[in-house]
């Protein structure tokens, strides 16, 4: 069975798809594109799809990953193009490589986020970030399936910076103009650049924003817009390595 690993994006308005919504759309796209997907055995066979990640509903992403199992061998490049065409614009298939072994999930250690905070001044955000960084622990609350939980949002944050708004985000630059998150261009918009380690319970952009509220009373007047720019292994230098790198044929043997 050929296994193919896929990187996809959730952009613009379609960032409001939940993980389940995406999963249904993806299964239909497999059929529309004529992908020879493999099925599990059993009375109700399921297509072989395993998701390595799921961005929260409402959060855009440039870097979600999944793996599929196929009954017949296909060219990953053609598969990428066919699947991309079969999905709604805004759910975009960016990359596909044949799996070279190992576990995709194991290669996801951290996420790089960009959070736009419209109508927030950069200086205000900077001060909040400073307070956040200075705190040894920032306790936030979230409603989980197990009920209300309190956990530390600080320790998982490997890096937190305020970037200048003039610098165009990867997300916005990659997306076609009509899918770009529409903002309020005239008003200020502070931007948070964030690297968060994968921990349990997971610390999500919302939790970091909740942390900024805790340490500095930062209350964005309108809902912030978060985008996952990358996820993968975290180097000692703080860089994130695309988890598909190790699967590429040209990758050095040692990394496969």
């Amino acid at each position: 069975m050929q296994r193919i690993r896929i990187r996809y994006a959730k952009r613009g308005p379609l960032r409001f798809t939940s993980h389940r919504d995406f999963a249904r759309a993806f299964e239909r796209a497999l059929r529309r594109a004529g992908v020879p997907i493999a099925f599990s055995q059993g009375f109700t066979p399921h297509p072989k799809i395993s998701y390595a990640s799921a961005a929260p509903t409402g959060v855009a992403s440039e870097a979600e990953y999944l793996e599929i199992g196929l009954q017949a061998t296909v060219d990953p490049g053609q598969l990428r193009a066919a699947l991309d065409a079969a999905l709604s614009p805004g759910l975009d298939v960016l990359d596909a490589v044949e799996a070279a072994g190992g576990s995709l999930a194991d290669r996801i250690e951290a996420s790089h986020w960009r959070i736009e905070l419209p109508q927030v001044e950069s200086d205000v955000l900077r001060a909040a970030v400073k307070a956040f960084e200075a705190a040894p622990e920032v306790l936030v609350e979230r409603l989980t399936k197990q009920g209300r939980r309190t956990f530390d949002a600080r320790a998982a944050v490997a890096r937190i910076d305020v970037v200048e708004a003039a610098e165009p985000s990867t997300a916005a630059a990659d997306a076609p103009s009509d899918e770009r998150p529409s903002g309020v261009p005239a008003a200020p918009c502070a931007i948070l650049d964030l690297v968060v380690r994968q921990v349990t319970p997971s610390v999500r952009p919302d939790d970091v924003l909740a942390g900024l509220r805790v340490v500095a009373d930062l209350e964005p007047p309108v809902p912030p817009r978060a985008t996952r720019l990358a996820q993968g292994t975290l180097t000692p230098q703080g860089e994130i390595v695309d988890p598909l790198e190790a699967d590429r044929p040209e990758a050095p043997i040692g990394e496969r």
Partner: peptide, 23 residues
């Protein structure tokens, strides 16, 4: 009305139903 609507969607349940973009 998308620019205004977009600000409201994070606050409602199942926002995808208001987004369109279906095949």
């Amino acid at each position: 009305v998308w620019p205004q609507l977009e600000q409201l969607l994070p606050q409602v349940s199942k926002p995808i139903q208001y987004v369109g973009g279906e095949l």
